[in-house]
């Protein structure tokens, strides 16, 4: 019992450090990649190639004045960044990062908690993430924040249904809800579920972008219309929590996408102890794709976004589910 607690705690600490560092360098990566796509240089002053920029940003965030506007609902205002930050990190509790391996004579599992309904846990936690945004929008006492919060909740409710349905196809084929077993089933590149569920993958990708409020679905924080959207009135570290939460969410959906459709940590050449490298490479590709999209597409208009969600994605998801179900039965 005690040994399990200690082992889990160590894993939690390692994963959290990795994720938070990942978030910091995701911002760096985003700025660099977008800069190259636009023929700019991007951050280049702090450290070689600007590599220390995220650290400089973090220090700046921490030491800025924390301005709280007069008309806010104090408690909810303080609660909102936490409600947005915590769920984005909780998802990583069930993501399998690497194969089981032996370290100094001990068997180490590559996941913090191997729930047998891991994928449902992911969706439960993701569905809680919307509260941070809604509460931030409502409690700020500013019309821009409120508009951002309302848009965001409408968007997340609309896309969450297709998001959930898009992965049911994979679950039907795999006949398990455990993320670890899903990865174990995709042992070679031909067994990756993206080949069996191409439409499901496209739906997952689209809905995941909408769920994480990224371009081209970043209506909640459309800066040309809403200043900063739901976090307009936040500054200093409270703002940083929203910011980190958003990037953690991006990494989380990339991890889940990798696990569901691209075989997670499975890959050739590397021993079990280093299989995490494959996982990181795959997640990195996902993140690159995200940033690529951001640099490419303009923002949707609000009514287009809702129409697209309900009249295109949702029927497609239902059809995908029906066809998959029939094939599995047959």
């Amino acid at each position: 019992m005690l040994e399990m607690i200690v082992a889990s705690s160590i894993k939690v600490i390692i994963v959290m450090l990795a994720v938070l560092t990942g978030c910091a360098y995701a911002t760096y990566m985003e700025r660099k990649v977008v800069a190259f796509m636009q023929h700019r240089i991007g951050p280049s002053y702090a450290g070689p190639y600007g590599l220390l920029q995220p650290i400089a940003d973090a220090i700046k965030m921490a030491f800025k004045e924390d301005v709280v506007p007069d008309k806010v609902e104090r408690i909810t205002y303080a609660l909102a960044p936490i409600a947005s930050f915590v769920p984005s990190l909780l998802v990583f509790a069930v993501v399998p990062f690497s194969a089981d391996f032996t370290l100094v004579g001990r068997q180490v599992t590559g996941v913090i908690s191997d729930l047998n309904i891991g994928i449902l846990f992911v969706f439960a936690i993701t569905s809680l993430g919307v509260y941070g945004i809604v509460l931030a929008g409502w409690s700020s006492g500013s019309k821009y924040s409120l508009m951002g919060g309302i848009r965001s909740s409408a968007q997340m409710i609309s896309y969450e249904i297709s998001y959930g349905l898009s992965i049911v196809g994979v679950i039907l084929i795999a006949n398990t809800l455990s993320l670890r077993q899903l990865v174990e089933q995709q042992d070679t590149i031909l067994h990756w579920y993206i080949w069996k569920q191409p439409l499901g993958f496209l739906l997952y990708l689209t809905c995941a972008i909408a769920e994480t409020n990224r371009l081209p679905f970043d209506l909640p924080e459309a800066e040309s219309e809403l200043v900063g959207g739901y976090h307009t009135e936040y500054s200093s570290f409270r703002f940083a929590m929203f910011f980190i939460g958003e990037y953690a969410n991006m990494i989380a959906v990339s991890c889940v996408g990798t696990t569901l459709f691209f075989g997670g940590w499975q890959g050739p050449f590397l021993p079990a102890g280093l299989s995490v490298i494959w996982f990181v490479i795959k997640v990195f590709c996902f993140m690159f794709f995200y940033i690529w999209l951001r640099a490419t597409f303009p923002r949707f208009r609000y009514d287009q976004l809702m129409n697209f969600g309900w009249k295109v994605l949702f029927p497609l998801a239902v059809v995908n589910l029906l066809v998959t179900g029939l094939i599995v039965l047959w």
Binding site: L115, N116, I117, L120, F121, F123, A124, T126, S127, L128, V130, Y131, V134, L135, G137, W138, L146, G149, I150, S153, A154, M156, I157, E160
Partner: peptide, 26 residues
């Protein structure tokens, strides 16, 4: 009852309460 617990969070805490909050905000 892991499944029931998770469903409680997905359906009630995640979906229905968001709608409540949405209406109250509007």
């Amino acid at each position: 009852a892991l499944f029931v617990g998770i469903m409680l969070v997905i359906v009630y805490a995640g979906a229905i309460m968001v709608l409540f909050l949405f209406v109250i905000m509007l």
